[in-house]
Amino acid sequence: MAHYVMVIDTKTCIGCTDCVDACRMENNVPEGLCFDWVVEVTTGRYPELKTEFRSERCNHCSRATCVTACPTGASQYWNDSNIVVVDASRCTGCKACIAACPYDARLIMQPEGYIGKCTFCVHRVQYGLDPACVAVCPAKAMHFGRLDDPTSEVFQLLESRESYSLNPETGNEPNVFYLR
């Protein structure tokens, strides 16, 4: 199984939100909605402070509850990988997958009504390209690749640097990692 992961370096991320922008243009995201977003976390007290930015999106979980919760199979893994996509033609818009997503990464596409989400830009991945957000990052803080390939950049980064993912305790096995 192809195991795609995204590795985001919080050390160099500057929180410019270019990833959100590039996603909107690439995927024609309906206005007002977004498939990815940037969180800014500040801890400490002036002047002892620390700020971290995190570009967040669907975690393309290896055990995705949105896929199991979908009553029609519209929410599915793409091509024997962990990339979660929604087949619009099978989607009823019942929103069970929205309720099932621990990362609140799903939304109702306006006006069609099917459920939209980050696709890891699977239309680019199929040609071996990086997702649009990764490709645009001006600080080169974002990386994408296959974790099942020990020679890949993402594998090396996760091997050599300390990292974390969001809420692994959900049991969903999220696949977006943040380097400290």
Binding site: N27, N28, V85, V86, D87, A88, S89, M109, Q110, P111, E112, G113, Y114, G116, T119, V122, H123, Q126
Partner: peptide, 16 residues
């Protein structure tokens, strides 16, 4: 909107 969108693929499916 539902009628219009009924038979249409998702944006990502179009892009594929």
């Amino acid at each position: 909107p539902s009628l219009a969108g009924c038979s249409q693929p998702a944006e990502w499916q179009r892009l594929m």
